[in-house]
């Protein structure tokens, strides 16, 4: 059965079982591979995308539940890596292996949307993704830096 999905503003009609996790629809049916698979049980956050602006862990989120909603993936954040969060990430040289970073950035975007100047405690509560390389020190600094950049733009 066809699922009509809107991903990064583009319409996609996908012939997949409605219960297929949104992650696999994004990665394997639509071909956007920036969103990552790691645990498959909503533990690590590598698969974080936005559905109507809310961060969801797409590995356990049925694709059918996203029909009619706006799905945003890392590919939709900017065309060229110029979003302030991406700029801050580059300034701090935050990623190591990078595998978790798409999810980290999506979690951060959702945080900054509702809390433009987050405290460390806000970050601890909102960015609960796993990074096995241990890049948290730079991620925290990059989140604060991104908040500054966004404020300066406003």
């Amino acid at each position: 059965m066809a699922l009509d999905l809107t991903i990064n503003g583009a319409a996609h009609s996908v012939d997949a079982d409605p219960e297929t996790p949104l992650l696999w629809v994004i990665r394997d049916y639509v071909g956007l591979t920036g969103t990552k698979f790691s645990c498959g049980m909503a533990q690590c956050g590598a698969c974080t995308v936005h559905v109507d602006g809310q961060p969801v862990r797409s590995c356990t989120f049925p694709a059918s539940a996203a029909v009619g909603k706006a799905i945003t993936t890392i590919e939709g954040v900017s065309d060229d890596g110029s979003h302030p969060v991406q700029v801050a990430w580059k300034e701090l040289d935050a990623p190591q292996c990078g595998y978790c970073q798409s999810g980290m950035i999506m979690a951060t975007l959702a945080l900054l949307e509702r809390t433009p100047e987050p405290t460390d405690a806000d970050i601890d509560a909102a960015v609960t993704n796993i990074c096995r390389c241990g890049t948290y020190h730079r991620i925290r600094a990059a989140i604060h830096r991104a908040a500054q950049l966004i404020k300066a733009e406003a």
């Binding site: 990552k36 698979f37 890596g81 990430w89 580059k90 040289d93 990623p95 990078g98 970073q101």
Partner: peptide, 26 residues
């Protein structure tokens, strides 16, 4: 700065899991 960081913030990095070939099965 590590040269691959720019592609790691856009999701463009090619990891093994991201390889796609025509006719490929999983």
């Amino acid at each position: 700065h590590n040269r691959d960081v720019p592609m790691k913030v856009t999701g463009e990095t090619m990891y093994g899991i991201d390889v796609r070939l025509p006719g490929m099965k999983w």
